[in-house]
Design a protein around this nucleic acid. Structure first.
Lengths: 195, 195
DNA sequence: TCTTTTTCGGACCATTTAGTCAAGAATAAA
DNA sequence: TTTATTCTTGACTAAATGGTCCGAAAAAGA
């Protein structure tokens, strides 16, 4: 009974990522937001709550999606170095794609709000530790599989580095439109795993 | 003849970096800005122009200062690897210092505005190319001095990577309050230069 | 058909926004 | 003292802000 929702809430969430990613949280006026989402003002408040609520939902949805993909790839049996290379090349591919890159920039807006929105700060802290642990587990396995040389003594540092590099690629993408630059950065980043 | 300015304009510019760095450009209301600068409203408009003018001035001042220091260090004779290590450790030191770190975050706010303020976009494009060239020159010299192994074939990629890593450290600092994490990231970043 | 839910659009609100103007006090050099 | 510049304060504006309320149309199941 009753009318069904006309829009797919996850599709709208995707659009929210794009809008917030482009204008930033504070830079996104309600008008811009509504135009970008393509829904009516009341529908926004009914479905997602306030502007801030929607922002938090979008950030969490985006981050969870990406993190899950990374962790899955890291835990898959086989070469760890190949897995990590896959992960970074996938990020670079997304950032080079005219369409897909747009929603990635919500990361930048989200990091912007870390000092002002405790819920986002706590969320990222938790996410970072999950990811760091994931990278660390993978690196330990890589070591057991003989993929690393003895110059990689500090696997904890390496794990932190890799997780941070993942985030930082979107920043690089915001600064350059040259795809080659992203490829170069990824290439050198991955070389940290070489012997 | 006439009264002198009571405030040092570069000191105020520094405070502007802190305020804009903390709240972001859009997140900084005029009231917050004036409170942070400690000057009267009219003084702001008389001395710096609009809010946007001040923001651009602060961004340029900060960037020029940092870039000049980096380029100077890179061009100094002696070990290039030591120079690069110095540069990154200095950044980490600044980001770990409770006071100095504050103004660094204007970089994040500035990158935020790249898609919306053409003047900032053009400025960063120029700055990035200057810095990339500086790193590249240094790496060529390092190669001539026998500091690099033959696994470092693509010095252009390495230069881009180093310049990007410089920027990305402030992002990492915004996400973590743990100093050890920054040290770890720097350590692994520099290991890209090892043989 | 009746009921329930959603969508949509416009009106509306109090608050905040960036920026301007004016006037008097302070300060410094001529 | 005179003159020029800056500082400070407060009032003011027009526009934009996020958010709420209302009513009618649309759609889906009972």
């Amino acid at each position: 009974m009753g009318r069904n929702k006309e829009f797919d809430t996850t599709v709208v969430l995707r659009k929210a990522m794009e809008v917030f990613g482009h204008y930033g949280y504070e830079g996104t006026s309600l008008q811009i937001l509504l135009d970008g989402l393509g829904i009516a003002r009341q529908s926004l408040y009914d479905t997602y709550g306030t502007k801030k609520d929607l922002f938090i939902s979008a950030v969490k949805h985006y981050t969870n999606e990406k993190s899950a993909a990374v962790l899955t790839r890291l835990d898959r049996p086989g070469s760890v170095k190949a897995a990590i290379a896959d992960i970074f090349r996938e990020i670079a591919a997304a950032l080079k794609d005219e369409v897909r890159r747009k929603e990635c920039f919500i990361m930048h807006s989200a990091i912007d709000q870390v000092p002002h929105v405790p819920e986002i700060a706590a969320f990222f802290e938790q996410d970072a530790s999950r990811l760091e642990e994931g990278f660390y587990r993978a690196l330990v396995r890589a070591n057991e599989q003989g993929e690393l040389s003895d110059r990689h003594s500090d696997l904890r540092a390496l794990a932190r580095y890799l997780n941070h590099s993942r985030y930082s690629l979107t920043q690089a993408a915001k600064l350059t439109s040259e795809p080659k630059v992203l490829d170069d950065i990824v290439k050198v980043t991955l070389s940290a795993l070489d012997s």
